[in-house]
């Protein structure tokens, strides 16, 4: 699974999972699952996240050593 900095980025922007989900047009479960590395988002959603937080996809997601 991918490691991600979604929680950190969310904290910087000071928004809740629910607010982020609404901004991206997805469910809160989706945001929660991505944050907990239980779900790897599609390229489209990863790009939406990257555009929303104004960071690169590589800053948001990182491969684990065993990947």
């Amino acid at each position: 699974m991918l490691k991600n900095t979604l929680k950190v980025q969310r904290a910087i922007k000071d928004i809740t999972q629910d607010q982020l989900a609404k901004q991206l047009g997805v469910s809160r479960q989706t945001v929660n699952s991505i944050e907990k590395s239980r779900y790897v988002p599609s390229t489209l959603l990863a790009l939406k996240l990257s555009a929303y937080f104004r960071v690169t996809v590589n800053e948001l997601f990182e491969l684990e050593e065993d990947d």
């Binding site: 997805v26 469910s27 479960q29 989706t30 699952s33 991505i34 489209l44």
Partner: peptide, 11 residues
């Protein structure tokens, strides 16, 4: 569909 039908729900 769910109320919010996104890619995660589809998976």
């Amino acid at each position: 569909k769910e109320k919010i039908e996104d890619e995660f729900i589809i998976s």
